[in-house]
Every structure is written in C-alpha cells, then in structure tokens.
C-alpha cells in the first residue's frame, strides 16, 4: 500500500502531459471545423494555418482551446473522452453485443489464458530438459533465444494463415502465438530456478544417496518457485500482447486487437483508445492476480523476500 502515492504521482504526471498535448494535437482539425461552423479563426485559410505549429495556433485562437477537448474525431482524444467511451462500451452495452468491450475482452482473454497455459507447460518441460540433459542444454537454449528475435508481427499472420488453411480457426491459432511469446520467460526463469540450489544442498542430497527424481521433487522444484512466479508475471503479459498481435494483421473481427484496428481504419480513434486502455487494464489485472498468488504462496513456503 505504500506504493500508492508514488504510483498515483506518476499517473497524474502522465495524465497532465496527455491533457497538455490534446490542444496542439487537435488544434488544426478544430480550427478547420470551427471555420466551417462560422466561427472566426485566425489565420483564415487552412493553408495559412499549416505555417503555424499547434501551440502557436492555439495562442492565436484561445477561444477554440476548449473545443479541442470535445472534438468528435480527434487526432488525440482527451482523457475524459476515452473514459466516457470505455464506460459506454463496458457498462452500458450488453455483454453479448458486438460493441461491448467486455465481449471483445473475453475474445482476447480466452486465447491469452489458453496460450499462457500451453506456453508455461512447454516452458517448464523445456527447462527441466535443459537442466537435466547436456544435449538439450546445448541445443534447445540457443533456439529458444533465436525464436524470440523473429518479429512476432511477421510470424503471426503466417501461423494464422497456415493453420487457417488446415481448417484450424478460432481460439487455437491465437493461443499458439500467445504461447510462442510466453514460453520464453518461463524457460529462462525455470532454468535459473532449477539450478538455484547451491553445491552444498546438492551434496547434502548426495550424502542421503537420493535419486535424481527425489532431488527434483524435494529440492530443485520448490527452490525454483520464486523464479517461476517472476516468469509467470512476464509470461502472462507477453501472452496478452501475443494474442492482440495475432488479432491485428489477420482481419479478426473481434478482440482488443480487432477493435484497435477498426478504430484506426474507420476514423474512430476513441474505439482504438478505449481498446488500448482496456487491454492495459486487463494486463495489469492479470499481473496483479499473479503477484497476489506469488505473495501468498511464497509466504506459506517461508520464502517471502520482504
């Protein structure tokens, strides 16, 4: 709870910057519209106005400044417009409606969670293999690293198209891309975690003549818990990003990614911005849930760091 004040300070600073930017960003559009509506604008032709920056134009036409905050199709919407759009599409639409952000949120969340489960499972299996097999250590790890250097934006449409041509559609192709992004932090974290027991702890098990699997279950796996949780928090947000990316270039009709794209293509910036913020809040909520589970689990395991 001590972090509330610093977090709110940063949020306030960002909001302040945003509010400041709204005026110059929208000024030219607002001036054009104001002239069409018969208001006095200086200078009085769009071409002449292009010679001025947004700030200078605002200073020349202070009476137009309030209009920049309520412009219908702004270049940069103001915070209250985004909040209004979010409220309208989250609370005032039926969940089943195609305009409801909750509906689109679930379309994105389902593959996110499925992809996260696949990615985490795969990541843990690979990490166990890497820790216990020298061959896998040498062969898998470099490929895992290379896999993350391929731009996901280039890979996503290919995967969707290939799977689509095989008749696989819906949640699964998006999950694959989410898994593709989320398995990596899990592999890295779990390899580190499974290797975290020191030589003394391994020697101790040796003096008991413990088998490899006993060492895994009694020592390596529990010792990796803090590393796993750190990875899960990165993995779940990567998974959400992966799903949204999978929705962007593939003509998806629903989901946060589709909403962002539709907003851009049809000149409805509010739709894009509302989807963007809804996605960010979803990611924050998911990470928050895992932080909570982490805190409870590590505390019960006597491994809490604070």
């Amino acid at each position: 709870m001590r972090s509330i004040l610093p977090v709110m300070t940063v949020v306030a600073a960002i909001l302040g910057f945003w509010v400041m930017c709204v005026v110059p960003m929208n000024m030219h559009l607002v001036a054009d519209q104001a002239q069409r509506d018969g208001l006095s604008v200086a200078p009085d032709t769009p071409n002449a106005r292009q010679d001025f920056g947004g700030v200078a134009l605002a200073l020349k036409n202070p009476h137009l400044i309030p209009l920049t905050y309520d412009f219908v199709r702004p270049r940069l919407p103001s915070p209250h417009q985004v909040a209004g759009e979010m409220y309208a599409t989250i609370f005032e639409k039926k969940i089943s409606s195609k305009r409801s952000l909750v509906y689109h949120g679930w379309v994105t969340l389902a593959p996110t969670l499925l992809g996260f489960v696949i990615g985490t499972g795969l990541g843990i299996l690979l990490a166990v293999g890497i820790v216990y097999s020298r061959v896998m250590d040498r062969s898998v790890m470099p490929w895992a690293i290379v896999s993350q250097t391929i731009p996901i934006l280039a890979l996503a449409p290919m995967i969707i198209v290939v799977l689509g041509s095989m008749g696989i559609q819906g949640v699964f192709p998006k999950s694959i891309i989410a898994a593709y992004l989320s398995f990596f932090p899990v592999v890295v974290g779990m390899v580190k975690g499974l290797r975290s027991p020191d030589a003394m702890q391994l020697d101790l098990l040796r003096t008991y003549n413990a088998s490899g699997s006993q060492g895994f279950w009694a020592l390596r796996l529990p010792a990796s818990a803090p590393y796993l949780f750190a990875s899960l928090k990165i993995g779940i947000s990567a998974s959400l990003v992966g799903t949204i990316v999978a929705e962007l270039p593939t003509g998806a009709r629903a989901g946060f990614g589709a909403r962002m794209l539709v907003g851009d293509q049809y000149g409805q910036p509010l739709v894009s911005w509302a989807a963007l913020f809804a996605a960010a809040l979803t990611a924050a909520a998911l990470v928050g849930i895992f932080s909570l589970i982490e805190r409870i689990t590590l505390k019960r395991m006597g491994m809490a760091t604070t």
Partner: peptide, 20 residues
Amino acid sequence: AREARAYGYVFQAAGLYPWR
C-alpha cells in the same frame, strides 16, 4: 558406505530448506 547411508554429514551452513 554412502549408498548404505553409513554417515550423517553436517555442513558449515545449516542449509535448511526454507519451505520446510
């Protein structure tokens, strides 16, 4: 002798598992 668990070994650090 080790396989027959003939000895107990105490290390310089206690090395207790924090989760147990």
